[in-house]
Amino acid sequence: MALASFVTIAATAAIAAPFTYVNARFGTVCTFPDEIFTLPQPEPDNGDGQQWLSADGASLICSGILNIDDDTPKGFVAAEKASKEPGYKITYSKTGKDWAVLSGIKGEAIFYERRLFGKDGVIRTVWIDYPPAQQSKYDPLVGAIAGSLKGP
């Protein structure tokens, strides 16, 4: 699966090289083209993940949190769909036994989020957002990046 993600990322963005991030605190892993997400941001003090920015306004976050509320994929999606946050609209959602995917609009950006609900009590997340004007560039990358999300 990881090799397929590398191949998909490389084929989709011919000049993009895959980079694999491993979070030391939660063991969250995700792979993405580091020639696109070139601006790593400092990790927060709690070490829960990291964010990367692109020159054209996109953002990628790979992180983990403790599942202190025993959240489930279906519960997460239901809560997000019920959100009244201005400018936040879910246009796609899907859940499995231990994962959830959301996509939609948040503010002025398109977003895609994948969460894995680990048996170790950690929720691992990859979040990608980008300007609508960049949709043709990022839509082909989202699946491979989100599919690379895993834990230990």
Rank of each mutant, 00 (worst) to 15 (best):
K106G: 06
F76K: 03
L39T: 07
P131Q: 07
T28G: 02
G147V: 10
Q135R: 09
V142I: 04
K137E: 01
T12E: 13
Y88R: 05
F111A: 05
A13I: 03
D34E: 06
L3Y: 10
K106I: 12
P44K: 02
V101M: 10
D45M: 03
I36N: 00
I68T: 11
L53C: 11
A82T: 07
C62V: 12
K137S: 03
T72L: 13
D56I: 15
C30Y: 05
A14W: 04
P42N: 09
S5R: 14
A13S: 12
N23P: 15
T28H: 00
W52M: 08
I90P: 05
K81N: 01
D120G: 02
Q134W: 02
L141E: 01
G151S: 02
I36T: 06
A11E: 11
A79L: 12
T12K: 02
E35N: 12
C62A: 08
Y138H: 00
D129Y: 04
E113Y: 06
I9K: 00
I36W: 01
V22W: 00
S5V: 06
E80P: 07
G57K: 01
D129P: 15
E80Y: 12
T91V: 13
G49A: 07
Y130Q: 08
N46K: 03
P131T: 08
T38G: 05
T31R: 00
F26E: 02
D120E: 10
A17G: 09
E80Q: 14
I65P: 06
M1P: 05
T31I: 10
A78K: 09
P40T: 04
K81C: 08
K74D: 15
A10K: 14
L149K: 00
E43P: 06
A17Y: 15
A109L: 15
I110G: 02
A58V: 05
P18C: 07
I105M: 08
G96N: 12
Q51I: 14
A2E: 14
A4L: 11
F111Q: 01
A11H: 12
I15Y: 06
T8Q: 03
A78I: 15
G121I: 10
P33F: 07
V101Q: 14
V122L: 11
G121N: 09
G118Q: 10
A4F: 13
S83D: 04
L102Y: 01
A82N: 05
R124M: 14
K84W: 14
T31L: 13
W99Q: 12
E43L: 09
I105K: 06
T28P: 01
C30P: 09
S136H: 02
Q51H: 11
I65S: 01
T8R: 15
